[in-house]
Design a protein around this nucleic acid. Structure first.
Length: 108
DNA sequence: TGGGTGACCATAG
DNA sequence: ACTATGGCCACCC
């Protein structure tokens, strides 16, 4: 299909259940690019271009740190959204990240 | 057309 | 334990 990689990334991100978080590498691996997790991050960078809303706030790096918070409308919006879903954020990091981690391969 | 970029991850020193 | 570097792929100008 003409679905670009971004479309797939957006689709997976949109499938992330509320209160869960995942990492770029997990999505990258699920899509098959594996090591090139950067493409996933790049896709998120252009997420604002997508017509539909993409819960990019549910996607963090492997350390569970909100690396992309600066790319949101407001830097605090990301952790605020996560907190709204019941996820605790301390020092721009997700508490019990492993516990809230959502693996697309296992769930999908 | 081609180059440069990027919100990463893994390994090595 | 921490820091530094390399690699990797797809999209935008």
């Amino acid at each position: 299909m003409d679905e670009s990689f971004f479309e797939k990334v957006y689709d997976v991100v949109r499938l992330i259940p509320s209160g869960r978080v995942t990492s770029y590498g997990a999505i990258a691996k699920y899509l098959g690019i594996g090591k090139s997790a950067r493409v996933v991050g790049w896709a998120m960078n252009m997420s604002h271009s997508n017509e539909k809303f993409v819960p990019a706030h549910r996607v963090v790096n492997r350390n569970g740190m909100l690396t992309g918070k600066h790319h949101f409308a407001n830097e605090k919006m990301m952790e605020e959204l996560l907190q709204c879903e019941g996820i605790k954020i301390v020092d721009d990091k997700i508490v019990d990240f492993k516990k809230h981690f959502w693996e697309p391969m296992s769930e999908l």
